[in-house]
Design a protein around this nucleic acid. Structure first.
Length: 872
RNA sequence: GCCGGUGUAACCCAAUGGCAGAGGUAGGCGACUUAAAAUCGCUUCAGUGUGGGUUCGAGUCCCACCACCGGCACCA
């Protein structure tokens, strides 16, 4: 019976249907046990799951099954991030409706996920494209609008000419649309914005409390929010040089200490003063036009030369009205940041230095490095941005830059000119408001109506949801909603006059900003959330997903949760108490004789003289083995989870995804690796059957040395696994399983005659523990083995075993003995031996005396349970 | 340019400041086999990217540098 191989293809579906029949993974909100919410980022239903999903969901399932065994009421749901552009692209390409395409994909991917044996509560499944979901999103939009969390404003937006939609700043990567890769243009449009920038300080401060988030993600968010402290300074303009109506220029600076090094002012090309000056200056107007073209068309901004144009306007130095500074328009000044205008101090800012060197405006150092002679300190090509003492700065001379900053701020913020303060301290953020308007069909409609008489009118809550119309066409670019007359034209809810629906839909990142809250009560028809329920479940205890969402999704969700808190839809600000970002699944790439990418399924690897070569299966033609890259359709280096699960079973795929590489790092998918995992599945099956075949033992009165060793190995593995699952160190959990399996196997192999009773009992106990450690990782195999051992019930509903911590403590310990840091001997002492006893035992060792070479002993360091070091 | 991460055996990786090896892969030898695969047993292999420092003791902490990966980047 042990000669039979474990047949995953038969066993896995069997156990899955038993779990399902018993409803093992359905979570009740009224369960009194302590809660644990584990969530993996929900997938976009693109068509089929990929290996990245397998890795992500395998990890989450280990945590879910482990926490369940430990007695927690575990919430582990799954859903679909189902709105978005690809559905519309597919609709255009295949003449199918986006909903048809999306729901077909969901059906496929749901089956695939189910074949992985994930312990998910499928009763809570949600799809964001379902009106039953997005009606609540519309409701919250109206609540946010009423609470002042939403703005409608004209703004320069990033326009993707290929997708014909607006993109958020976060969605523009290197000047290109994140999805289409098209060069992004700037357009002025009226858009809806979530006022995330009002929360910049709070979103920044609260990062410090997220101690179970990766440092890396917190740093990325910090940089993205981009806080800077500075001074807004108002420069007076020389009336003789200034267009009528303009008297002052506001600039923002973080270095007011360098004001006496000012050599020029610079305006953003679209600054109002620049536009005013351009009205009577065609050459300036032409320069501004050129900047705008460069700004949008240039993909590599850093390569752009610093260019400027003298407006002829002269500004007066705030500390010396006789000192005039030329005002330029410059291509490197951004209208969106600060005030859209700067003063340039070339000596201490590299960018300003490059600028003056191009226009011959001169350099005046005002900060002198400590230990350098101020008389001879000059700046030519490299700006000095370090510490030192102020020079050439009148009343600031001798101060540190920090003291000078404070002094300048103090003087200028006390000064009035024309009835207004000359300067004020100001905190600036890089973070801009979140533009959510998208000119797309397949998204959540923004529930407002535009009336010529009443303006923007919210759709009454009783009229929600604003459903997407089904009868739409995609034969022309642009938004089908905008040309859908019967959907678009509606009476105004206020005055009943003819009015128009908002035809923009919401950014799909809105959909994913609260799905974790909806999972707590997905059946609620009247409210997005039930306060009592959502407050009991949130925050998510462990969130797992890809690092690519470190900024967008995670920052938006943090903002949205705050907005839900303010409007009574949630009781917390932070949605995710613990975050884990897993690495990617990568694979070798292959290029065929014609230079085209070849998929791993089409090749065979042969070893010749220790060298790996690849050849085409079809023709035997040589294939070039390329670099290891993230699995992608374009490089064709993907492996289909269905193929792996079909060939080896889900447990093998899960096991391999958890092995070897630490979970936060990339894992290389290799055929050898999968086969190694598959071999271990069979080996575990054999070990368990060997144990099952042992004759039934009568109760063992006591355990001999061999039996005790087996028991110790089991309890050690149990203790280590507990610690490592908690820390999500799955590669180590895998190692503990191997270690224990090795221990069991060798304990049985060394037994030449029939197993004594005590060893049989120990082996059975150890095998029980082994299976319970394995169960979260390979749940089907664990069930099959559990049954083979004749154990009652399902391992999936068996409590986690209690580790015997006293057992693993040794009575005698062997300590390494170092002399002057080098190991010279071992000493074996009772576990509770005191320092003096250990010292005398060590000094009695010949090897120690020899190593000391008659030198006197200066010190003996005894590290309890660890090591002894003799210093002589 | 700025910020962060990583660097240990042929490869993937372990190691609360305490004997560099838990585990896997690959390799070698042997057993089983007509043979191969599978299986079982035995086994080879590094002083931790480089250079300093702290310490009784450093893969681990500190400093500098190198390489690779990631994020941000005319942000005033």
């Amino acid at each position: 019976m042990t000669s039979e191989r474990y047949n995953a293809r038969e066993a896995e579906p069997k156990w899955r249907s038993i779990w399902e029949e018993k409803g093992l993974f359905h979570t009740r909100n009224d369960d009194p046990r302590p809660k644990y919410y584990v969530l993996e980022m929900f997938p976009y239903p693109s068509g089929r799951i990929h290996m990245g999903h397998v890795r992500n969901y395998a990890m989450g399932d280990v945590v879910a099954r482990y926490k369940r065994a430990r007695g927690f009421n575990v919430l582990h749901p799954m859903g679909w991030d189902a709105f978005g552009m690809p559905a519309e692209n597919a609709a255009m390409a295949n003449k199918t409706h986006p909903a048809t395409w999306t729901y077909a994909n969901i059906a496929t991917m749901r089956d695939q996920l189910k074949s992985m044996g994930l312990s998910l509560d499928w009763k809570r499944e949600i799809a964001t494209c379902d009106p039953a979901y997005y009606r609540h999103q519309q409701r919250m939009f109206l609540d946010f609008l009423a609470a002042g969390l939403i703005d409608r404003k004209t703004a320069k937006v990033n326009w993707d000419p290929v997708d014909q939609t607006v993109l958020a700043n976060e969605q523009v990567i290197d000047g290109r649309g994140w999805r289409s890769g098209a060069l992004v243009e700037q357009r002025e449009l009226t858009q809806w914005f979530f006022k995330i920038s009002d929360h910049a300080q709070d979103l920044l401060d609260a990062l410090d409390g997220l101690d179970r988030w990766p440092e890396k993600v917190r740093t990325m968010q910090k940089n993205w929010i981009g806080r800077s402290e500075g001074l807004k300074v108002r420069f007076a303009l020389d009336a003789a040089t200034t267009p009528a109506g303009e008297t002052d220029l506001d600039i923002y600076t973080t270095r007011p200490d360098t004001l006496f090094g000012a050599k020029f002012m610079a305006l953003a090309p679209d600054h109002p003063l620049a536009r005013a000056a351009a009205e009577k200056n065609p050459a300036l107007a032409a320069f501004i036009d050129e900047c705008k073209r460069m700004g949008t068309a240039l993909e590599n901004i850093e390569k752009a030369e610093k260019k400027g144009f003298d407006t002829g306007i002269r500004a007066l130095h705030p500390f010396d009205p006789t000192w005039t500074v030329p005002v330029y328009v410059a291509n490197f000044v951004l209208m969106e940041y600060g005030t859209g205008a700067i003063f340039g101090c070339p000596a201490h800012d590299q960018r300003d230095l490059d600028f003056v060197n191009a226009y011959g405006l001169g350099v005046q150092p005002v900060v002198c490095p400590e230990g350098t002679n101020p008389a001879s300190f000059v700046v030519t090509d490299v700006a000095y941005d370090g510490e030192g003492r102020m020079i050439n700065s009148r009343f600031l001379d001798g101060m540190t830059p920090a003291e000078a900053r404070e002094e300048v701020a103090k003087r200028l913020e006390a000064e009035m000119r024309g009835g207004r303060l000359v300067a004020e301290r100001k905190v600036n953020f890089r973070l801009r408001d979140w533009g959510i308007s998208r000119q797309r069909y397949w998204g959540c409609p923004i529930p407002v109506i535009h009336c010529d008489a009443c303006g923007v009118v919210p759709v009454p809550k009783t009229d929600l949801p604003v459903k997407l119309p089904d009868d739409v066409t995609f034969d022309v670019p642009g938004n089908p909603l905008d040309r859908h007359a019967t959907w678009k034209n509606v009476p105004c809810p206020h005055c009943a006059a003819p009015a128009r629906r908002e035809t923009d839909t919401m950014d799909t990142f809105v959909d994913s900003s609260w799905y974790f809250a909806r999972f707590t009560d997905p059946w609620n028809e009247t409210e997005p959330t039930d306060p009592a329920v959502v407050n009991a479940w949130l925050p998510v205890d462990q969130y797992i997903g890809g690092i690519e969402h470190a900024i967008l999704h995670l920052l938006y969700s943090r903002f949205f949760t705050r907005a839900m808190h303010k409007t009574g839809h949630a009781g917390v600000d932070e949605p995710f108490a613990g975050l884990f970002t897993q690495g990617m699944v990568v694979h070798e790439t292959y290029k065929g004789p014609d230079g085209a990418w070849v998929s791993p399924a089409e090749i065979r690897i042969v070893s010749e003289g220790g060298e790996r070569r690849a050849q085409l299966l079809s023709s035997g033609a040589p294939v070039e083995i390329g670099s290891i890259e993230k699995m992608s359709k374009s490089k064709r280096n993907t492996v289909d989870p269905d193929d792996i699960i079909g060939t080896y079973g889900a447990d093998t795929a899960r096991w391999f995804m958890l092995s070897d590489s630490p979970p936060e790092r990339d894992v290389i998918w290799t055929e050898e690796g999968v086969q190694g995992a598959a071999r271990f599945v069979q080996r575990l099956w054999r070990i368990v059957n060997d144990v099952a075949d042992l004759p039934t033992a009568s109760a063992a009165p006591s355990f001999g040395p061999a039996a005790t060793a087996v028991r110790k190995a089991a309890h050690r593995a149990l203790i280590s696994t507990e610690a490592d699952v908690e820390r999500l160190r799955f590669n180590r959990c895998v190692a503990h399983v191997y270690e224990l399996a090795n221990a069991l196997q060798s304990a049985m192999a060394t037994q030449e005659t029939a197993c004594p009773d005590d060893l049989v009992a120990a082996l059975r106990e150890a095998t029980d523990i082994l299976l319970r450690i394995v169960a979260p990782m390979m749940p089907h195999l664990a069930e099959e083995c559990w049954a083979a051992l004749g154990r009652d019930g399902l391992i999936a509903e068996t409590a986690w075993p209690v580790a015997d911590r006293d057992l693993v403590v040794e009575d005698e310990i062997t300590l390494p003995v170092q002399v002057n840091g080098k190991k010279r001997a071992d000493v074996t002492v009772p576990r509770d031996a005191d320092q003096a006893a250990i010292e005398s035992a060590v000094m009695a060792l010949d090897a120690v005396r020899k190593a000391l070479e008659d030198r006197p002993v200066k010190k003996v360091i005894v590290v309890p349970q660890r090591i002894v070091n003799v210093v002589g």
